[in-house]
């Protein structure tokens, strides 16, 4: 399987590199799958990201970002009151990425911290200026707590060069990823300036029984509640039968 994917990546890279001038772009990126079904047996998954670039004399490296769909994050801070730890303060961070990871080729110094709370990365933007921006307490707390849930990796992961033009990385998605549209972007850098960017998308959606149960629980909570009660009645009588033997 791994071999097959590598072969696939290799040929994709070659073809992509050859086709590039026609696309008018210097860098492309793709994934081994663009749709992920969150079924009842979903326990997280691994994705292969790969792409090709036609480096110019200016090219010094690549930065790749994977962003989950935006969410409103409630960050709470505990404090001591009467000897006990209560949640004493909180902030809602609106529209933050529910998932964020950064890959960079060796020699590029950047992390999620520097990118996530900033405006869009786009051509002619300088990454070094972004490193100066200070995060406030709550933004930093969001990064830390989300990292504990494996939803954010604050340090950039290594983006491997497979040759002068091909690159690849593998991405671990934990089981608690939010369903929705994920954006994968690659930026080609000249020292710290972005020359060109390329984007692709990944769709994570609930599927099968999982999707049905979730929809029922949220859209028809009364029916779902009755289902749970009926289930307990049936299994209670069933268990009594089993236990009597």
């Amino acid at each position: 399987m791994q071999r097959l994917i590598l072969t696939f990546v290799f040929w994709f890279g070659l073809i992509a590199a050859a086709a590039m001038p026609a696309w008018g772009s210097n860098v492309v990126v793709d994934l081994d799958r663009n749709d992920i079904d969150v079924t009842i047996t979903f326990g997280g998954t691994q994705l292969l990201l790969f792409g090709a670039v036609r480096p110019t004399d200016e090219t010094t490296g690549l930065v790749m970002t994977i962003e989950g769909p935006p969410v409103n994050a409630m960050v709470r801070r505990k404090g001591r009151l009467l000897g006990l730890w209560f949640n004493l303060d909180s902030r809602i961070l609106e529209g933050v990425s529910s998932y964020f990871q950064v890959f960079a080729t060796p020699g590029i110094d950047i992390g999620a911290t520097a990118i996530m709370f900033q405006p869009e990365l786009e051509p002619d933007v300088r990454l070094s200026e972004r490193n100066l921006v200070q995060l406030d307490e709550w933004q930093q707390a969001y990064l830390d707590t989300a990292e504990a849930k494996e939803l954010i990796v604050q340090n950039a992961q290594v983006l491997d060069w497979k040759s002068k033009t091909l690159f690849r990385a593998s991405l671990n998605l934990p089981s608690n990823v939010a369903p929705g549209r994920y954006r994968v972007r690659v930026h080609e850098l000249s020292s710290d300036r972005i020359i060109v960017s390329s984007t692709t998308y990944l769709e994570i959606r609930r599927a099968g029984l999982n999707a049905n149960l979730f929809a029922l629980a949220v859209d028809q909570p009364a029916t779902y509640g009755l289902l749970c009660v009926v289930l307990a009645v049936i299994s209670g009588f069933g268990a009594a039968r089993l236990l009597r033997r």
Partner: peptide
């Protein structure tokens, strides 16, 4: 069970099934 599912969306039926199997 009904009220928690209805008001708080806080009953997970898969979790229930696993617990009930173990309980028997």
């Amino acid at each position: 069970t009904f009220l928690q599912a209805y008001a708080n969306q806080s009953v997970d039926v898969m979790l229930s099934v696993l617990l009930i199997i173990g309980g028997v």
